[in-house]
Design a protein around this nucleic acid. Structure first.
Lengths: 264, 264
DNA sequence: ACAACAAAAT
DNA sequence: ATTTTGTTGT
C-alpha cells in the first residue's frame, strides 16, 4: 500500500518535464526515506538521480519498499492533465501492476484519477560514490541554461574551466569560437542570484552540450544550480527541489586526445 | 437586399473559427428572425446549428428570406482580415452570386470591403426535435475544453455520466485509464464559473472525443457551456452568444456493443 | 520577455 | 507530414 500526497503538484509535473526527454523508462523507488529514481539516459551516457524526501509530502505512506517501472512519456502525459495548482496523490497497491495518480483541484470541485500500467524494467542501480570535487560552482540556473543554449549554437562541446578568475565556458565550431566567463559574485540582493565558486584546485573539463542542454530542462525547479567538477569524474549538475530533495544529473567528461587538441 | 451590421465583429470571427474545422461548406439562412446556419460536418456525424438573432445587430435589413452558400474556409480567410474591434457589415444583393463583407475600423480610418463568391449547396435542413433531457450540465466552457483535451491524450472516446454526485468523464486507452469528476458548485463568485447539474434521471453516454474537441473551438464565444444528455439521443453542446443567440453542436452517442464492452 | 502550444501554410 | 507563424501562459 502506497499513498503519497503532494500538495504542490506542479513540482512533480516539472520533474517529469525535466527528465522525460533524457530517460524513456525508469523505476521509481519508494521507501520510508522518500520517492526516488535513478536512471541512465537512453544512450547510456548521462545519469539522472531524483530524490523527493518523504517529509516533503503532506501525507506519506509506504508500507514496504517498492519499485515501480514507468514509461516517463506516458506518466508525463497523465501529469499534464493535472492543473498546476492541483494536489497530486500517487497511489499503489501491493501486487498491482498499475499506479494511480489522483488530482484534486484547489477548491475540490474536480477530482481526477488516472491509472497507468506499470512495466518491468531492468534497473542497474549504480552506487554513486561520494566524491571530493576540485571545484563547486553555484550560479543562477537561468544563467547556466542561457549559457548552454547560447554555446550550442556555436559548437557541440563546452570546456568548463574553473580558476581563481571565475568559471569559463568555452566552445568552438565551424563558424567561430566563444568564451563566457562568470566571475564570483556574492553581492547580489537575493542569495539565489549569486554566483559562488568554491575551488580547491583549478579544473578544466569538456562536455557534450547536447546533454547539458537536456539537464537545463530542470531550470524551472530551482533558481540556482550547482555544478561539481573533478578531473576524470563525471560532472554533477544539481537542482535543489525546495523542501523536498533534488534532481542530479551526471555526465562523464570527454577525454580530448592530442589529435583533437591539435585540430582545435 | 441584405444588410446586416454587427458592431462586435469579433463575434463573427469567433463563430467561424469555431465551425470551419467541422464544416467546409454551408448555407447561411437569412430571415427576419436572424442570421442562421445549420450543417452536418463533412463525415455526417455531427451537426452544427448557429443562430444570430436580428436584434443583436445594430442594423438588420433582410427584405426576403435568402440562403447563401459559402465556403467557410474562404469566409474565415476574409474575416481574418477584419480587426477584432472592427464593425462588420454583411451585404447581399438579390440575384447576386456574391456576398460582401465590409469592415470598419473603430475610428473609421480604415474601411475594407471583401467580396466573396457564393456557391450552391444542397442543404438538407433537418428539423431538430425539441427534447426532454435526462440531464443538463452547465459548466465553465474552459473547464469542459480542458477535460476533452486532457482525456484525448489517453483515449479516443469519453463516457459522460451524470449522477447525483456530479458529472463524470471517463476514458481508457493503451497507456491507462482516467476519470474526471466535477461536482456541482454554485457557490462561486461569478455565475459563469459555476457548475450546475440538473438531473431528472442518471445517464451515461459514450462519445468520440475527436468531435467534442472540435466543438470546444467555440470556447472563446462563451464563459460557460451547456451539455444536454438523454439516452439514445444526440448530446447537445451549447455555447450562448451574448445578446445574440447560440452555437449548438449535436453528436450522436456511440452505441457500445457487447463485444466492445467485453474488450474493455 | 521567453518558451510552450496551437494553427496555418507548404 | 513537416515547417513556420501566431498566440498564450509563465
Amino acid at each position: 500500500m502506497l499513498e503519497l500526497r503532494l500538495v504542490q503538484g506542479s513540482l512533480l509535473k516539472k520533474v517529469l518535464e525535466a527528465i522525460k526527454d533524457l530517460v524513456t523508462d525508469a523505476n521509481f523507488d519508494c521507501s520510508a526515506t522518500g520517492f526516488s529514481l535513478q536512471a541512465m539516459d537512453s544512450s547510456h551516457v548521462a545519469l539522472v538521480a531524483l530524490l523527493l524526501r518523504s517529509e516533503g509530502f503532506e501525507h506519506y505512506r509506504c508500507d514496504r519498499n517498492i519499485s515501480m517501472g514507468m514509461n516517463l512519456n506516458n506518466m508525463s502525459k497523465m501529469l499534464k492533465c493535472a492543473g498546476n495548482d492541483d494536489i497530486i496523490t500517487i497511489k499503489g497497491d501491493d501486487g498491482s501492476d498499475t499506479v494511480t495518480f489522483m488530482f484534486e483541484s484547489p477548491n475540490q470541485d474536480k477530482i481526477s484519477d488516472f491509472e497507468m500500467k506499470l512495466m518491468d524494467i531492468d534497473s542497474e542501480h549504480l552506487g554513486i560514490p561520494e566524491a571530493e570535487y576540485h571545484a563547486i560552482v553555484k550560479m543562477p540556473s537561468s544563467e547556466f541554461g542561457r549559457i548552454c543554449k547560447d554555446l550550442s549554437s556555436i559548437g557541440d562541446t563546452v570546456v568548463i574551466s574553473v580558476s581563481k578568475e571565475g568559471v569559463k565556458f568555452s566552445t568552438r565550431g565551424d563558424i567561430g569560437s566563444a568564451n563566457i566567463v562568470c566571475r564570483q559574485n556574492k553581492t547580489v540582493d537575493k542569495p539565489e542570484g549569486a554566483t559562488i565558486i568554491e575551488m580547491n584546485e583549478p579544473v578544466s573539463l569538456t562536455f557534450a552540450l547536447r546533454y547539458l542542454n537536456s539537464f537545463t530542462k530542470a531550470t524551472t525547479l530551482s533558481e540556482s544550480v550547482t555544478i561539481s567538477l573533478s578531473s576524470e569524474l563525471p560532472v554533477v549538475v544539481e537542482y535543489k527541489i525546495a523542501d523536498m530533495g533534488y534532481i542530479r544529473f551526471y555526465l562523464a567528461p570527454k577525454i580530448e586526445d592530442e589529435e583533437e587538441d591539435m585540430k582545435s
